[in-house]
Protein backbone atom coordinates (compact mmCIF):
# COMPACT_ATOMS: atom_id res chain seq x y z
CA UNK A 1 0.00 0.00 0.00
CA UNK A 2 1.68 3.16 -1.22
CA UNK A 3 1.28 6.53 0.39
CA UNK A 4 0.61 9.24 -2.17
CA UNK A 5 0.81 12.97 -1.70
CA UNK A 6 -2.14 14.79 -3.25
CA UNK A 7 -0.85 18.19 -4.37
CA UNK A 8 -4.33 19.69 -4.09
CA UNK A 9 -5.18 18.40 -0.60
CA UNK A 10 -1.51 18.73 0.39
CA UNK A 11 -1.81 15.51 2.34
CA UNK A 12 -0.13 12.12 2.08
CA UNK A 13 -2.81 9.46 1.95
CA UNK A 14 -3.20 5.73 1.30
CA UNK A 15 -3.12 4.45 -2.25
CA UNK A 16 -6.68 3.12 -1.88
CA UNK A 17 -7.95 6.70 -2.21
CA UNK A 18 -6.31 7.10 -5.61
CA UNK A 19 -6.68 5.74 -9.11
CA UNK A 20 -3.98 5.50 -11.74
CA UNK A 21 -4.78 7.37 -14.95
CA UNK A 22 -2.06 6.62 -17.47
CA UNK A 23 0.98 8.47 -18.74
CA UNK A 24 1.17 12.22 -18.13
CA UNK A 25 1.95 15.13 -20.43
CA UNK A 26 0.12 13.70 -23.42
CA UNK A 27 -2.11 16.53 -24.58
CA UNK A 28 -5.09 15.97 -26.80
CA UNK A 29 -4.28 17.69 -30.09
CA UNK A 30 -6.16 20.95 -30.59
CA UNK A 31 -7.38 19.81 -34.01
CA UNK A 32 -7.35 16.01 -34.21
CA UNK A 33 -8.80 16.06 -37.72
CA UNK A 34 -5.64 17.79 -38.97
CA UNK A 35 -3.46 14.87 -37.86
CA UNK A 36 -2.20 12.13 -40.15
CA UNK A 37 -3.16 8.55 -39.35
CA UNK A 38 0.34 7.94 -37.98
CA UNK A 39 0.27 11.02 -35.75
CA UNK A 40 -3.15 10.09 -34.43
CA UNK A 41 -2.03 6.49 -33.82
CA UNK A 42 0.94 7.77 -31.83
CA UNK A 43 -1.32 9.99 -29.73
CA UNK A 44 -3.75 7.14 -29.06
CA UNK A 45 -1.50 4.20 -28.45
CA UNK A 46 2.21 4.93 -28.26
CA UNK A 47 3.45 5.27 -24.68
CA UNK A 48 6.86 5.53 -23.03
CA UNK A 49 6.66 2.28 -21.06
CA UNK A 50 9.52 3.53 -18.91
CA UNK A 51 11.73 1.33 -16.81
CA UNK A 52 12.56 3.83 -14.10
CA UNK A 53 11.15 7.33 -13.58
CA UNK A 54 7.80 7.71 -15.30
CA UNK A 55 5.63 10.79 -15.59
CA UNK A 56 2.10 9.66 -14.97
CA UNK A 57 -1.36 10.80 -13.94
CA UNK A 58 -3.27 9.88 -10.84
CA UNK A 59 -6.68 10.89 -9.60
CA UNK A 60 -7.58 11.44 -5.96
CA UNK A 61 -10.82 9.72 -6.77
CA UNK A 62 -11.98 9.00 -3.22
CA UNK A 63 -10.87 12.41 -2.00
CA UNK A 64 -10.91 15.77 -3.76
CA UNK A 65 -11.49 14.14 -7.14
CA UNK A 66 -8.67 16.04 -8.84
CA UNK A 67 -6.36 14.64 -11.48
CA UNK A 68 -2.70 15.38 -10.84
CA UNK A 69 0.69 14.33 -12.11
CA UNK A 70 3.42 12.27 -10.52
CA UNK A 71 6.91 11.10 -11.21
CA UNK A 72 7.19 7.51 -10.08
CA UNK A 73 10.00 5.03 -10.49
CA UNK A 74 8.46 1.94 -12.08
CA UNK A 75 11.24 -0.28 -10.75
CA UNK A 76 11.15 0.71 -7.09
CA UNK A 77 7.53 1.92 -7.15
CA UNK A 78 8.77 5.01 -5.32
CA UNK A 79 7.04 8.36 -5.94
CA UNK A 80 9.71 10.97 -6.59
CA UNK A 81 7.19 13.80 -6.58
CA UNK A 82 3.60 14.74 -7.33
CA UNK A 83 2.43 18.05 -8.81
CA UNK A 84 -0.69 19.75 -10.03
CA UNK A 85 -2.09 19.21 -13.51
CA UNK A 86 -0.88 21.90 -15.86
CA UNK A 87 2.40 22.47 -14.05
CA UNK A 88 5.72 22.01 -15.83
CA UNK A 89 7.21 18.56 -15.51
CA UNK A 90 9.96 18.59 -12.88
CA UNK A 91 13.39 17.46 -13.93
CA UNK A 92 13.91 13.86 -12.87
CA UNK A 93 17.68 14.13 -12.49
CA UNK A 94 17.28 16.70 -9.75
CA UNK A 95 14.74 14.61 -7.89
CA UNK A 96 16.80 11.46 -8.12
CA UNK A 97 19.82 13.34 -6.80
CA UNK A 98 17.72 14.39 -3.82
CA UNK A 99 16.85 10.75 -3.08
Amino acid sequence: MLLIHCPYCDETLPEAEFAYAGEAHISRPADPMALSDEEWRDFLFIRTNARGPHYERWRHIHGCGRFFNALRDTVSDRFLTTYKAGEERPAEAKLEAAE
Binding site: A21, S27, R28, R57, R59, R66, F67, A85, G86
Partner: peptide, 13 residues
Protein backbone atom coordinates in the same frame (compact mmCIF):
# COMPACT_ATOMS: atom_id res chain seq x y z
CA UNK B 1 -18.21 10.53 -14.75
CA UNK B 2 -14.49 9.77 -14.44
CA UNK B 3 -14.04 10.23 -18.17
CA UNK B 4 -15.97 13.51 -18.16
CA UNK B 5 -13.96 14.78 -15.19
CA UNK B 6 -10.73 13.78 -16.89
CA UNK B 7 -11.48 15.83 -20.01
CA UNK B 8 -12.91 18.72 -18.05
CA UNK B 9 -10.02 18.97 -15.60
CA UNK B 10 -7.08 18.21 -17.83
CA UNK B 11 -7.99 18.98 -21.46
CA UNK B 12 -10.56 21.75 -21.20
CA UNK B 13 -10.05 23.46 -17.83
Amino acid sequence: LNMMEDYLQTEWP
